[in-house]
Design a protein around this nucleic acid. Structure first.
Lengths: 253, 253
DNA sequence: GGCTAATTGACATACATCAATCCCTTTATT
DNA sequence: AATAAAGGGATTGATGTATGTCAATTAGCC
């Protein structure tokens, strides 16, 4: 153990990492926190670069329902979620919305404005109480120019987002409702909660906006899945009984 | 005019540019051709870098209907269209496809595999006879690392594609058929042909796959637009009579 | 006990499907 | 050269169905 050296720092009460930043400010949007996430594109940054990025960041708390980023407005911030759950969605025609994805700890949203006029293409709003870091996107742009492996990571991030949008396009336009609900349930199980049983802070309306249908239709499909023995539902608690069954429904549209 | 110096080169019979490349090989995927396009992301490259990229390129001809890139296969090529019209589409469930966009001269498709395992997320096939350059994507990756303004352009390109996918997602899932057909017609007029009257080499099936509906439905909507005086249609020749009318239909879904 | 969300039912409709006909171009035949 | 046959796309009509809309009821929850 090399903890001797690290232990000189006070452990942050919130994120439980050793950091001079945390120890001084008790502010958990600290450098260590960023580095902790193996999937973060910020991993490619050196300590100095991370210092530069984190300096002057804003750590903000939002209550459920509050808007973090508003679609079609200009914002020079890049959002990085520290705590809680938020939804990224597009406000479409006639008041209908599509939830693109859910974001939680360490998730990173560039919003479509990077190097492109800073106009946000999504609205992001808090579902649970949320803590986010708002990073200055011009700093990100500077790092993009200076650190090549970081820019590769950022491009990869965009490529993946691109591919997931294409998949969503196909799933939402070509599948019947059962297939779309199956996709939503599998997304929650495998990508968000990573557990067969999970309790979601989402309303039926939210779930329907993830599945591109009305809330009434969503409820009906959930009932069908319940009586077919594919899932158990009790309020906001879901249990996936037959994942292969759901997969099959998803495949056949 | 500085044509004296340039005139020492033979003019390429095909692309009508002066170029030693063209003059020797009569191969129109020449460096001059690339530089000619103001919107090309390749503009950010120096002459030497362009040489590096263009060296070893493959210029290939395709007949109508031929597949240039096949979805879900691995390919280390990046496609750059020199001549003709091709469609970029996703093959979805139950044999249905969605045409994402049409590509013609100078258009550039990275396909979703760049820095991401080289698996293509789209199928690209020729509509008219098509000439494309296939560039080695690893060379693109090298240039990405070396030339910062090029990497910025590439990221911007991805960001724009991202935003257009989001728009497509909303349009195709939330609008009624008339709104979707209006979008397709406005796309053809403003983005592809840049003219009120245009003759498309597309079948009704193609148009329907751009609008996410069956070909029968597409035909019916076109009839409605015709009798409403919004457009004139005769075979494959379209004339936009009332663009504002179409815009209004597009907005209201 | 009142508020919002969830559920259920009856009904309306946008859209797909299926089948028939039409139209136009290409190929074969006399 | 004129005509017929063939084939594929375009169009139109009749019908079925997936899904949305509207309204009423029930269930949770500060």
């Amino acid at each position: 153990m090399e903890s001797a050296k690290i232990a000189q720092n006070i452990e942050c009460s919130n994120c439980h990492k050793q950091s001079d930043d945390c120890s001084k400010t008790f502010d958990c949007c600290c450098k260590n926190c960023f580095r902790d996430d193996n999937t973060s594109i910020l991993q490619a940054l050196s300590k100095g670069e991370l210092d530069y990025l984190v300096e002057g960041k804003h750590q903000i708390h939002y209550k459920p329902g509050e808007t973090i980023i508003k679609q079609n407005t200009s914002s020079t911030y890049v959002v990085c979620v520290r705590e809680g759950l938020a939804k990224v969605y597009v406000e479409g025609v006639r008041g209908k919305s599509i939830i693109i994805r859910l974001i939680s700890n360490q998730d990173f949203v560039t919003g479509g404005g990077l190097f492109n006029g800073n106009i946000q293409k999504f609205t992001i709003s808090a579902i649970t109480p949320v803590t986010v870091c708002l990073l200055d996107s011009s700093k990100l742009a500077n790092l993009f120019s200076e650190n090549n492996s970081f820019s590769v990571e950022l491009l990869r991030h965009h490529t993946k987002q691109n591919n997931s949008l294409v998949t969503k396009l196909v799933n939402l336009t070509q599948k019947y409702m059962p297939g779309r609900v199956a996709d939503t349930l599998l997304y929650l199980k495998n990508d968000i909660y990573k557990n067969n049983t999970f309790s979601v802070p989402l309303t039926r309306q939210d779930l329907s906006e993830m599945s591109n249908m009305t809330k009434e239709s969503l409820v009906r499909i959930l009932q069908q899945f319940k009586t077919s023995g594919l899932i158990k539902v009790s309020g906001n608690t879901f249990e996936i009984i037959d994942e292969n069954g759901l997969r099959s429904i998803s495949r056949n549209g």
